Computed example of a mutant assay.
Amino acid sequence: MKNRLLIFCLLFLLSCGKLTSHEHTFYYWRTNLSLNKAEKTALNNSKVPFLYTRFFDIDKIEGKFQPVGVLTKDDSFKTNKKIVPVVFIKNEILYDIKPDEIDFLAKSIFNLIIRKGKQLQLNLSDEIQIDCDWNSGTNKEYFDLLKSLKQISHKNITCTLRLHQVKDRNFMGIPPVEKVYLMCYATSSPLENSLKNSILDVTTLKNYLDHLMVYPLKMDIALPIYSWGIVTNHLGKHKLINALSSEELKKNNNFKKISDDNFEVLKDGFYFGNYLSKGFKIKIEAVSQKDLDETLSFINGQITFYNIIYYQLDSRFIKNYNLK
C-alpha cells in the first residue's frame, strides 16, 4: 500500500512538472528574411514547429488601404519551421470603415499572403495571425474583419491580445477566434516621463492580468527579448529607436556613457536611421532575465497550457537570455 502511494505521489509530481514546462518559438519582425548562425541555432533548438513571421503592415494612404514594409527574403533564410504569416493592422484605419471595405480588405490581405508565400517559397502553416491594438471604438469593425478573413481564407485565424484588452475585456470585447497570443510587454508608453521600464514592468503587468484565468479563449504567451532607445532632445521631447542596445552605443565613439543605461550624443549625425544632435540623451531600456522569470511564474499561477513566443528572433538579443 505504501509503495502504491509513493508511486502515485511521484507520478503526480512529475505530471505537475510537465504542466509548467512550456515549449517556445519566436516572432520574426524584420522586413527581410535572413538568419545568421546564432539565429539558426536558436530556431533549431526550438521544439515548436512554427515561426511567427511579420509579412506586412496595413495602413491607409491617400484614402486607400496599402501594404507597408512587405516581406522580402535572402538566400541565408532556410528553416524546417512552418511559417505563420502575421499582419499588423493600424487601428486608425478601422474607424468609419464600411462593410464592403472590410470584405475587400480581408480578401486583399489573404491574396497578398498567398502571393508572397509562393514568391518567397515559404512553407506556410494553416494559421494566419492578425496584430491590431483595437479598442471599444473599433472592436466591431475589427471582429468583422477577422470573421471575413476566416470565411475567405478557410484558414485558422488567430490574433494578438494586449494587456488592456484583457483588463477591460467587457468594453473591448472578445475576438471571434479560437486562440489569442497575449503580448506580455509594452506595459506603458516609452514616450512618457517615467522611472518604470516601459517594455516590461512586472508590477504593472500583474495589475493588468489579475483575472487572466477567466479569459475565455485559449492563448499562448509572447515575451519580450529586445531593447530600445528613448531619445530626449533639448526641449525634453522623446522619440523611440527600436532594437537599440547599450552595446551598440558603447562601441561608437560619438556617444558618451553617463550611466549603465544612459548615453549622450557627442556629435551631430545620422545614427540608426535617425538624425541626432549633439547633447541629445539616449536611455536604453531592456528586459532582465529576472523579470522574464517573474512574469512566467505569475502566468503559471493563472493559466496552465501554453507555448511561449519570444519577441523577437535577433542574435543581438537572444544571447542575453535563458530561453525556456
Rank of each mutant, 00 (worst) to 15 (best):
T203W: 00
D96P: 07
Y28W: 02
I318A: 00
L6R: 13
F88M: 00
N207F: 07
C132I: 01
E285L: 10
G273D: 12
N156K: 15
K81M: 01
I174Q: 09
H234P: 10
S245K: 06
T25M: 10
F272N: 13
L10T: 13
V180M: 05
L235Q: 09
L11V: 11
L244K: 02
C184N: 06
L276D: 02
K256G: 09
L191M: 01
Q121K: 12
L71D: 06
G279Y: 14
K179V: 00
K60A: 08
I109V: 04
V70E: 09
L240K: 13
G63T: 14
W228G: 02
F263M: 10
Q129N: 05
A286T: 11
I299M: 09
F104P: 05
M1I: 14
I299E: 06
V48M: 07
N36C: 11
K324V: 04
I174M: 11
S188F: 03
N262W: 11
C16A: 11
D100N: 08
I109T: 13
S46A: 12
E285H: 14
L146N: 07
K196H: 02
L235Y: 08
G301V: 06
K140L: 12
T20L: 06
P99S: 11
R162L: 00
L122R: 05
S46Y: 10
N170K: 13
L200Y: 03
Y95E: 13
L120E: 04
I93V: 15
I230C: 03
K167Y: 12
L10M: 08
S288D: 00
C159M: 02
L35R: 11
H238C: 04
K82V: 00
I225E: 02
D126N: 15
T138N: 10
F298P: 03
S108V: 01
K78C: 04
M1N: 13
R162V: 00
N111D: 15
P175K: 09
K257R: 11
L223D: 10
S21F: 12
R115G: 06
V87Y: 01
N197R: 07
T203Q: 01
A38E: 09
S34H: 13
M183G: 09
T232C: 10
T204S: 05
F317C: 01
K324C: 03
F298A: 02
L124Q: 10
N274E: 14
N233S: 05
E92G: 04
S288N: 08
I258G: 08
N139W: 04
I309R: 13
R169S: 14
W29T: 08
F298M: 08
L292E: 07
G236V: 09
G269C: 14
A38K: 14
H154K: 15
G117L: 06
F280N: 15
K283S: 14
W228S: 08
W134S: 04
Y226E: 06
K257Q: 15
K278Q: 15
H238N: 08
K150F: 04
Y271C: 11
Y275W: 05
G273H: 07
T53L: 04
F143D: 10
S194W: 07
R169M: 11
